[in-house]
Write a protein that binds this DNA or RNA. Structure first.
Lengths: 156, 156
DNA sequence: CCCGCCCGCTTGCAATTGCAAGCAAGCCGC
DNA sequence: GCGGCTTGCTTGCAATTGCAAGCGGGCGGG
């Protein structure tokens, strides 16, 4: 696996963790992995197995597939727009009429966004749900420190 | 990972390999893994990484996702309504309002289907494509031997 | 008999993965 | 100042992963 992918995986996990306002130890605990290992993963020093990615994803409340894609072990649904199209078409719980209807709604929204130039440019593009940290802590201070570390990490 | 899953993974790979009429060594070579390791995988003695599964799947000309599902590192798609939910929430081209709207439509369809008991239950099977073996060999004999081994392997 | 080829599997080992124990630094209250 | 707590990271180690070298067996041809 190219270290480039592993690097982006770690950055991605760190980003999601911060979005969720978890400290490294908090996420490690919730995910059931050791905090040093999670640190190494975030810094791209280790390449975690799919099981570990699954655990991390679950703790971050994102889909495991998202992390698999980042790790390069799953193909991206290439093209964000086609991804949802494919998902709609592949959903076994919908019949053909409903699929087409959903697609039509989706296309209408895309068109609307193109015309208004509006989209959810929120950083939570991956559907991250900011979770409350498990324990109270000096959140403001932790964020400040985390930002400084993030700059350092980007160098790695 | 429960050894049960690993066991079924190995059995599945062996089955697909036989369908493709590959010997263990042939598949190992095409997949780019060592033949002893492939043997161990098939017998459930080792739990391969996603990368190895990817290589094996490619050699067998099946989707990697199929093997991921067998290995338990990917959720099976069928009946997995949350997958489309996740896709909607993950789509970066939609804003929050549109995401919620699409989800509402989706939920309405699911409810409709539950009441009518109707859905397009087209099950896209794993689509195994038997491939021709890379080299000619005593296929009949190899199959006979392989069957005997298969029985032994099932005991393990 | 021999040899060569094929088959699947055994075994020992190096590299990798994931962890436990612990470090250093920052912040806060006394 | 101190101690207690939090933070992210370092380090050594055990277990696991994947491989190379090789085994034993079957088959066919000389």
């Amino acid at each position: 696996m190219a270290s480039l992918n592993v690097g982006s995986l770690g950055e991605y996990i760190r980003e999601q963790r911060r979005n969720a306002q978890y400290s490294l130890r908090q996420l490690a605990e919730v995910a059931g992995v050791s905090n040093p290992y999670l640190s190494q993963i975030e810094r791209g020093l280790r390449k975690p197995s799919a099981e570990i990615l699954q655990q991390i994803a679950k703790a971050l409340r994102i889909s495991a597939e998202t992390l698999y894609v980042q790790a390069g072990i799953l193909e991206e649904r290439d093209g964000d727009a086609p991804a949802l199209r494919a998902a709609i078409l592949a959903d076994p719980l919908l019949n053909e009429r409903q699929k087409q209807a959903l697609l039509a709604v989706y296309e209408a929204f895309l068109k609307e966004n193109r015309e208004t130039g509006e989209s959810s440019g929120a950083a939570a593009a991956t559907g991250t749900v900011p979770a409350t940290p498990p324990a109270g802590s000096a959140d403001a201070d932790a964020d400040a420190d985390a930002d400084a570390d993030a700059d350092t990490g980007a160098t790695g």
